[in-house]
Simulated scan of single mutants.
Amino acid sequence: MDGASPSPPAEEAGRQSLAALFFVFAKLGITSFGGGVSGMMHAELVVRRRWMREDEFLEGLAVSQALPGVNVANLAIWLGYRARGAGGALIALAAVILPPAVLIVLIGETLLRLSAWPVAGALLAGVAATAMGLSLAVGYRAARHAGGDLASVAILAGTIVGALVFHLSTPVLIAVFAPIGIGLAFGRSRREQG
């Protein structure tokens, strides 16, 4: 890998209440913007609360991005499930979606009026830049975690080239590179066990 120190041990799974889970995911849903949600989830659940290890979070991030649907919802389901099973998954999903939806409905008219204000564009550009920075930070962590060998780096590079140069869709990239990565990981696991 990269020689970085391992993540601190996560607290015991299931130790947090469903109410605490709802509160944390509702806070994340209301206070995070755009692609930065996964970065804020990492900061809250791995760094601050230590509800899971970094490798567990990155595993969930990879799964949530490979599945159809909204990445943030998928990640909330995964993280909630890891924390408290099926009930935790439902609570995390509801918490990350419902409070922001209610807030948007309540302040929707104000948002429409503000969007016509010239300074609002500059403010939103600043928020977008921050969200992009959070996304890149999580992407860097995931790449560092996954880039433990030459084959993983080749898959990462192939995916980037496929997306940016050839404009391949996510399903195509997953269909091409996921089986290769799974096969390599399976082979590596068998060698380690045998």
Rank of each mutant, 00 (worst) to 15 (best):
L111C: 12
S135T: 08
L150E: 12
V72T: 13
A89V: 13
G133H: 06
N71Q: 10
G158I: 05
A154Q: 05
R144S: 14
G139P: 03
G158A: 02
I160E: 08
L111R: 04
A73V: 13
A143Y: 06
L156K: 00
L98V: 15
G139T: 07
A157I: 03
A163K: 14
L98M: 14
L79N: 01
P99Q: 02
P99L: 01
W78M: 09
L75I: 09
T110K: 09
G85S: 15
R113P: 05
A137R: 15
V70F: 10
V161K: 03
D149Y: 03
V138M: 07
W78T: 06
G148C: 09
A66Q: 02
A129R: 07
V96L: 04
R84T: 03
T110V: 07
L103M: 15
R82E: 01
V102S: 11
I77P: 00
V96H: 01
A116R: 14
A157N: 02
L75K: 00
G88T: 05
L136I: 14
L164I: 12
P68W: 12
V119M: 10
V63E: 07
A151K: 07
V165I: 11
A129Y: 03
G133T: 07
A122P: 05
I107L: 13
Q65M: 09
G87H: 10
L112V: 11
A129W: 05
L58P: 02
L112E: 10
A83P: 03
A163M: 15
Q65W: 05
T159M: 15
L123Q: 06
S64A: 15
S135V: 06
L93H: 01
T130D: 06
T159S: 14
H145E: 02
A120V: 08
A94K: 09
L103N: 10
G60S: 07
I155E: 00
Y140I: 10
I155D: 00
L123A: 12
R113H: 12
R84G: 07
T110P: 04
L156T: 04
L134G: 04
V161Q: 05
R82N: 15
M132C: 09
L106F: 03
L67I: 05
L123K: 08
A163H: 14
T110R: 10
V138G: 01
A86I: 15
A137L: 15
V102P: 09
G60R: 04
G60W: 00
A101T: 09
G162H: 00
T159K: 07
L164M: 13
A146D: 00
A128H: 04
G139D: 02
S152V: 02
